[in-house]
Computed example of a mutant assay.
Amino acid sequence: MSTPTTTPSPTVVKCPTCQTPVVWNDTSPYRPFCCKRCQLIDLGEWAEEEKAIPGAPDMSDSDGWSEDMGY
């Protein structure tokens, strides 16, 4: 007796911008976004520094160190 072959269900994610379900495969060229518009909205938020990856603070100006040693 053979077992029926099942195809795995496609992975579906929510668009980070508008929360629309997006199938994660080659038919979704803007994945994880649902469309070019949502992709550009997200890019604009990064460019305007509304989004950021947490990390160590920038020490380049606050510690008084300079590459120019006056030589």
Rank of each mutant, 00 (worst) to 15 (best):
A56F: 08
V23P: 02
D42H: 14
A52T: 01
T11K: 13
D58V: 09
P29Q: 01
P54S: 06
S28V: 00
T7P: 00
K14T: 00
S62D: 11
D26M: 04
T27G: 03
T27W: 02
C34N: 04
E49F: 11
P10E: 06
A56C: 01
C35L: 08
Q39N: 14
C34A: 06
T27V: 03
I41V: 15
D58I: 08
G64E: 10
W24R: 03
A47T: 03
C34R: 05
M1Q: 05
K36N: 13
L40I: 02
V12A: 05
S28H: 01
Q39I: 02
Y71L: 11
E45G: 05
S62C: 10
D63N: 10
S60T: 13
T17E: 12
N25H: 05
E50V: 03
L43D: 10
R37P: 01
K36H: 12
A56K: 08
C34V: 06
P16C: 13
Q39W: 07
P16I: 12
S28K: 02
T17H: 04
E50C: 07
T6M: 03
W24K: 03
K51Q: 10
T6L: 14
T20C: 03
P32A: 08
E50S: 09
P57L: 09
V22I: 09
S28F: 00
R31M: 02
P57V: 14
T5Y: 07
W24V: 13
R37W: 09
T3R: 12
W46H: 15
D58A: 11
D58C: 12
S66C: 08
C18Q: 13
M59V: 14
R37G: 12
L43T: 13
Q39M: 14
S66T: 15
S62K: 13
W65P: 01
A47R: 09
V23C: 03
P21E: 12
M59C: 05
P10M: 05
M59P: 03
T27M: 03
E48A: 15
G44H: 11
I41C: 07
W46I: 13
Y30C: 04
G70N: 13
S66E: 05
T5K: 11
D61Y: 10
D26L: 07
V23T: 15
T17M: 07
A47I: 05
I41S: 09
P57D: 13
W46N: 07
C35A: 13
L43A: 15
D68P: 02
S2K: 12
D63A: 02
P32C: 11
G64V: 13
K51D: 06
M59E: 09
V12L: 00
V13T: 06
P8G: 02
